[in-house]
Design a protein around this nucleic acid. Sequence first.
DNA 1: ATGAAAGCGCTAACAC
DNA 2: GTGTTAGCGCTTTCAT
Lengths: 299, 299
Amino acid sequence: MLNAAKALGYRPNALARSLTKRNSHLIGVVLGYMDNTFYTQVLKLLSQRLQSEGYHLMLFLSDPGDVDNVLHQILQYRVAGILLASATLSSDLANECEAIGIPVVLFNRSVRGMPTNTVTSDNYKGGRLVGKFLADCGHTRIAYIAGAPDSSTNKERQAGFLEALAEHGLKCFAYAEGNYQFEGATRAARDLFSGKRKNARPDAVFVANDHMALAVMDVLRFELSLKVPEDVSVIGYDNVTQAAWPTYDLTTVEQRASPMVQASVDILLDQIKNPRLQHNHVVIPGDLIVRGSTRKIPS
Amino acid sequence: MLNAAKALGYRPNALARSLTKRNSHLIGVVLGYMDNTFYTQVLKLLSQRLQSEGYHLMLFLSDPGDVDNVLHQILQYRVAGILLASATLSSDLANECEAIGIPVVLFNRSVRGMPTNTVTSDNYKGGRLVGKFLADCGHTRIAYIAGAPDSSTNKERQAGFLEALAEHGLKCFAYAEGNYQFEGATRAARDLFSGKRKNARPDAVFVANDHMALAVMDVLRFELSLKVPEDVSVIGYDNVTQAAWPTYDLTTVEQRASPMVQASVDILLDQIKNPRLQHNHVVIPGDLIVRGSTRKIPS
DNA sequence: ATGAAAGCGCTAACAC
DNA sequence: GTGTTAGCGCTTTCAT
């Protein structure tokens, strides 16, 4: 019977089924950017997990300003849930999703008062770890290269970092913005380090993510002939694959994609099955991974 | 009127529309692997282009053996077209798509006798460029680290490479397989270079893609303390972003994602509008990009 | 022009 | 259990 159907070339129509069952088994995923390899890792895990749960992934790469527009398109497909990574939506739209009963999770971004779930790493704590570590290493001129200044990840990492410095009687020695872009970080590194004599330049720099930290190391070493970590310690955030490569050997704070994705999908599937009013806010801790890009200054 | 509808929270149902119009405006994209950043670039371009054409992207990451399974799921959503990147399907399924009238393009892979469109770079020519260049540089012990041995990209690059070598009276000095994996390439590099005295080891190596070439350079420099290019020239394929980073400064053959994606989407949209029997086979040329990882031997 | 009816391919509800 | 019917939300056709 089933074989007969198959022989006749029968293929159930998922669209029609979605229409009657009122569940498309589609998950809308919008990515703010993909240059950072952390997100390609996320995408891979997400795809695998959704696949194994019988859900399918509609992917949208979207500029920050364009998210709401993209969301409207997603909603027309009657997606069962939405995941926004490195992106946020207007509270209007969040409320709309809430009203329709479509669960949404903000991945790696959290916004106060937004009626959504959030899954993030412990950015504040991570920032603290970095500040404490650099101070403990004996650094005194510690700089910060920020990501996108308004992003929650940047704000929290920065806040934790500054606070830890303050507890050691230190202030941030220099500041620049890289906007989470490779080129932005390149410029920021030049600003902070070029043409400065030894005591006028930072002896350590915390870069808000690994993607930028790699760019910073390249500028330091190849443009400015500064040694890492002898002349300047550098430390990143995310623990992307490349951070472990010997060329970089970058000290960093891990952001564990796997449990983060796990939690996100769990929330989504759970709320698809039993609609809730409650929202979850999952925070996944991550350790400091000490590698060779930082040094301890003998006291 | 439209405003009234909007005020009432009306939202057209794309699923229902797809059902009647018999066009879901969905494109199924299956990626064989994403470790290679070339494919994240492809994905980005693909997403942008499809978005601007009013199409939407269903993404599947699939192991080579699982493609057919995944394809069946895709077909149930009545996708308007399918793009397989770094993956192939069984000819049974290709015929089935053909019969249903769903256009499919094989991206960066070509299989003889498959009733599909293909879009690739000129891998054979690229291989030739590499072989000729290395020979012209005066290298005599030239090795090859292969990608997945059965993939069309690998076979063509290798064929062109060997042929160019032959024309210069050279044979391939050593061979290993990296399977397009980072770890595979790491092992391959160890096999070919470790514990060998100068004249027993290659003085140049062509690695079948950049992703692996980066791994090879790391092993050479950090594990084996060999200098690139002084001790060995290395050359990759793809011209991914990282190849241009000063740490690597890798000589490579460019594979131009943008025109390749362009052509793929053009084909898909064209064949969605006017179903054809004819299949296209687009080959995008790419130049050799000479950087600092290769040297000319004084004669 | 505006409106009613039929149908896309499926599932759920109700019959028999 | 097997069969029939209604309806998911839309578009297209045909009537008014």
